[in-house]
Design a protein around this nucleic acid. Structure first.
Length: 113
DNA sequence: GCGTTGACCCAAA
DNA sequence: ATTTGGGCCAACG
């Protein structure tokens, strides 16, 4: 149908924003996790969306796969997380401890394919 | 259409 | 732990 050809990335854009917005305080998720939950084609898109339209979102709760924040945001991000009770060892946050529970039960691919 | 860049991820050395 | 290389996707010149 023609309805598909347009606004697809816009919908993904909104979906990603909504997902990040639903991350509870004191909890974090990785770019890859968000990509998985939103079924984004790649984690890179999450970073791009945040850089362009993540100013009003809890972007500080999104970390890289190894638990470290992006280089240029590290200071700001770690400070904000610390304020929410998320402590980090150096630049690394304990994902095992603070990782968003919903992420652990990520949906299986092919369920809707 | 190609090359570069970017808030990424993973595996191997 | 760090560096290197490959893969990934979209925007921009």
């Amino acid at each position: 149908m023609d309805s598909w050809g347009e606004g697809v990335d816009e919908e993904l854009h909104e979906r990603v924003r909504e997902t990040i917005r639903s991350i509870p305080e004191g909890t974090v998720a990785t770019y890859g996790d968000i990509a998985g939950l939103t079924r984004a084609p790649s984690p890179r898109l999450i970073g791009r969306i945040l850089s362009e339209d993540g100013h009003d979102l809890p972007w500080h709760r999104v970390l890289r796969a190894n638990g470290t924040p992006a280089p240029h945001l590290a200071e700001e991000q770690l400070a904000r997380l610390r304020a929410e009770g998320v402590l980090a060892d150096g630049d690394k946050v304990d994902l095992r401890r603070h990782r968003w529970p919903e992420v652990a039960a990520e949906p299986e691919p092919g369920l809707f394919d």
